[in-house]
């Protein structure tokens, strides 16, 4: 099962200081698939993404990406390897222009390639391409979220970790962002999507994991029959 995996997480433990948040998490993402990671508040979804992208050290277990271990890799090394994390809360740089925000995502790329990458990323989101000279702080929440995703795209990731891209967005914009994800998958990019909106995530995802109290409690194809009921039980803390 693991042979064709792009990301392979095995028995991962991680947490903050003394507080263990993740307990023996196993998870696989294959190339060109969208995996939804669902679960109630405080289950450890954000923590898992942070641990994978090098923002948080883990305490036990292992994770490999494209065949090499992620142990000790910092966010920069992860991004260079093609594992890109778009953090929660559309945290773009408010004092910099849209173009500069994207340029920073391409910080260590050759100067010549930078503008082409920025162009490509802007093409995906015409809404912000029209505002490319404006400051990040002048954008609406939805536009900031698009900019954050565009920052991730500048890297041309092999795997995109997305943390709650729907937060604070209108339903129309959520559909818009999820549609982009589907297009990315069709172009060969894998996506690990953390979401609160269960139905919308299931509609776009190929597979789904549910995390509760730091443990994976469910792993199923997104179209599996009776999934909604199993998720409901998982959310209420009972293994499904």
């Amino acid at each position: 099962m693991a042979a064709d995996a792009l990301l392979h997480v095995e028995a991962l433990d991680a947490g903050y200081g003394k507080i263990g948040v993740l307990h023996r998490v196993d998870l696989i993402v294959r190339p060109a698939e969208i995996v939804a990671l669902l679960g109630p508040n405080g289950a450890g979804k954000t923590t898992l993404l942070r641990a994978l992208s090098g923002l948080l050290p883990w305490t036990a277990g292992d994770a490999t990406f494209a065949g090499s271990s992620l142990r000790g890799a910092d966010p920069r090394a992860c991004a260079r390897a093609g594992l890109v994390h778009v953090v929660e809360g559309h945290r773009v740089f408010t004092q910099l222009s849209v173009t500069d925000n994207l340029a920073l995502a391409a910080y260590d790329l050759p100067r010549g390639e930078r503008s082409a990458r920025i162009e490509d990323a802007l093409q995906v989101f015409p809404e912000i391409a029209a505002k490319h000279t404006e400051k990040g702080g002048a954008l609406s929440g939805g536009q900031q979220q698009m900019l954050a995703v565009a920052q991730g795209l500048v890297r041309r990731p092999r795997l995109l970790l997305l943390d709650e891209p729907s937060a604070g967005l209108s339903p129309v914009l959520v559909d818009r962002v999820l549609l982009v994800l589907a297009r990315l998958r069709d172009a060969g990019t894998a996506v690990l999507l953390v979401e609160q909106l269960v139905e919308k995530s299931l509609a776009v995802a190929d597979r789904v994991y549910a995390l509760a109290q730091g443990r994976i409690v469910l792993n199923a194809p997104a179209q599996a029959p009776g999934l909604a009921a199993r998720l409901e039980r998982a959310y209420l803390g009972v293994a499904a």
Partner: peptide, 8 residues
Amino acid sequence: VVEAYLGR
């Protein structure tokens, strides 16, 4: 309640 929890 269930709806709110599941984000629908």
